[in-house]
Design a protein around this nucleic acid. Structure first.
Length: 478
RNA sequence: CGGGGCGUAGCGCAGUCUGGUUAGCGCACCUGCUUUGGGAGCAGGGGGUCGGAAGUUCGAAUCUUCUCGCCCCGACCA
């Protein structure tokens, strides 16, 4: 049992912070609300990034980079956008030792700068669609920061597309939502509900917002990715016009979508346990730690290490890329070395000692279950491959079962209130109310509508009593 | 931003109320020996000026004022 991590049951937030610290994922920076992403954490981000980036390329998107500083006036061009972001903008008022004529905002998101550029680049329907993504940092001055979940500065990806028709833009919005769902579920092993947000939860300036909503292991909800249909709001604000097929001027239809380093927070709070981090195999930068052990340090180094390196090379070679890491911390005792990799969430631990060499086997230990398997040398590659697949699916299934077990139905507002208070988790109820109703529900229960359940579920609204309300998931959220 | 808690060695803490010789303890770290398959034992070491600033005092970790930061709850949050 880990002795440097507070048990989850005792104090969930402390557990979360302890896991991050023990796995050396991040540390607090000198500036309030900012964090340093340490190598172990950053390598997980790189791994996540590469999955998404490949998928974006596959769906026809290209990467570009837009500047960090945005003229303050840009934000005022879209009424809802400015209202939504004004409170969290960081402003640069001085530069070069002088006060600036017009302050620059440190980007909280780039719809505005990108919109201004699109208006220059797009002339004709032949220029469309424009499908651009950028990987960058953004800053939102948060009142209550939490590592990975809500920091003032964070890393993310923002896709910005412009289309000829509303239909096409809507399809794009949903296409990217599906890309998100599939990667978050299949690679990061986090089950999500991919669906529409209610009016009160919309991105400022969007016509429709969609989310991939996940449940953390304390039953609170976390928005893991969003995709927005922006209609012609930004096109009108930034004058993104093109000449259509009939020769007339028309406004584009735009979308934007993003996932951030918050996914690392989601990964932690979905899979990890009281021993520390657990990283799903497909995301894990190191999938197996190979640990040569012997009572005699020189034997470990001179006799066993070469075998370990051989095994490492074989696994890397047959299973692809930077697959394994050989632990050469011979001065530490085995148990200490085991814990290091355990806490960093490495999916498999391969122990190689004199006993194993004599028996022609390798001892394999699973991070998710702790199960130990002695695999014969000629079966190691196959066993490792199978175990990684098993761990991947086990993590997903476990998380999904947990979510399903903590999802309840409410047929009245009172019942919703009662369930949120007594059990927590996701509560499904028919809802067709206004943003004002949402505010009231939040004030009275602490829960908010997280996502409209995908599919055509209609019923009687628990607030207004009107028929035709959509089945909506309510929960307390991060 | 409001309420509460807290900043003393890398981490966790004691000491603060009732100012006073070289500021302690556990873990971690370093050296040696014995150990070694889920966080070892003994012995010997290194490391802090007490979050920061100003003040009171012969004397401040301890008292006063200001300030910075962290955690929890609340408000807010695409």
């Amino acid at each position: 049992m880990a002795r440097n991590i507070t048990p989850r049951q005792e104090n969930y937030s402390q557990w979360y912070l302890d896991v991050i610290k023990a796995a050396e994922l991040a540390d607090y920076a000198p500036v309030r609300g900012c964090m340093v992403i340490r190598p172990t954490g950053y390598s997980i981000w790189e791994s996540i990034q590469s999955k998404f980036d490949a998928a974006f390329k596959k769906t026809g998107h290209v990467n570009a980079y837009f500047p960090l500083l945005i003229p303050d006036s840009f934000f005022r061009k879209e009424a809802e956008h400015v209202e939504g972001f004004a409170p969290e903008l960081a402003m640069v008022t001085h530069a070069g030792g002088e006060k600036l004529e017009e302050p620059y905002a440190v980007r909280p998101t780039s719809e505005t700068v990108i919109g201004s550029m699109y208006s220059k680049w797009i002339q004709s329907w032949r220029d469309l669609p424009v499908l651009i993504n950028q990987w960058c940092n953004v800053m939102r001055w948060e009142k209550r920061p939490r590592l990975f979940l809500r920091t003032s500065e964070f890393l993310w990806q923002e896709g910005h597309t412009a289309h000829e028709t509303a239909q096409e833009a809507r399809e794009e919005t949903l296409r990217m939502l599906e890309v998100y769902r599939s990667i978050i579920e299949n690679e990061i092993a986090i089950p999500v509900l991919a669906g529409e947000k209610t009016a009160g939860e919309r991105f400022p300036g969007a016509v429709d917002t969609y989310t991939c909503e996940a449940m953390m292991s304390d039953t609170k909800a976390l928005q893991a990715g969003t995709s927005h249909f922006l209609g012609q709001n930004f096109a009108k604000a930034f004058d993104i016009q093109y000449q259509n097929r009939e020769g007339e001027l028309d406004y584009c239809w735009t979308t934007s979508w993003g996932v951030s380093t918050r996914l690392i927070g989601a990964l932690i709070m979905t899979h990890s346990d009281d021993d520390g981090l657990i990283v799903p195999p497909r995301i894990a930068p190191v999938k197996a730690a190979i640990i040569p052990i012997s009572k005699d340090e020189s034997v470990a180094e001179n006799d066993i290490l070469p075998k370990a390196k051989e095994l490492s090379a074989k696994l890397d070679d047959e299973l692809g890329g930077m697959f394994t890491k050989v632990d050469t911390d011979f001065h530490a005792r085995p148990a200490d070395r085991f814990f290091t990799h355990l806490q960093k969430g490495v999916p498999l631990r391969l122990e190689l000692g004199e006993k194993d060499l004599a028996a022609g086997t390798v001892r394999i230990v699973r991070r998710d279950t702790g199960a130990k398997i002695d695999a014969a040398n000629d079966k190691v590659v196959e066993t490792v491959k199978n175990l990684l697949d098993e761990i991947q699916s086990n993590l997903f299934t476990k998380a999904k079962t947990f979510r399903d077990n903590n999802t309840h139905d409410a047929s009245s507002y009172d019942e919703l209130k009662e369930i949120i208070e007594s059990k927590g988790g996701f509560v499904r109820a028919y809802f067709g109310g206004t943003p004002e109703d949402e505010t009231r529900i939040r004030e009275e229960t602490g829960a908010t509508p997280r996502v409209i359940v995908p599919g055509d579920h209609k019923g009687k609204c628990i607030i207004t009593g009107n028929e035709g309300a959509r089945l909506t998931v309510f929960a307390k959220a991060y």
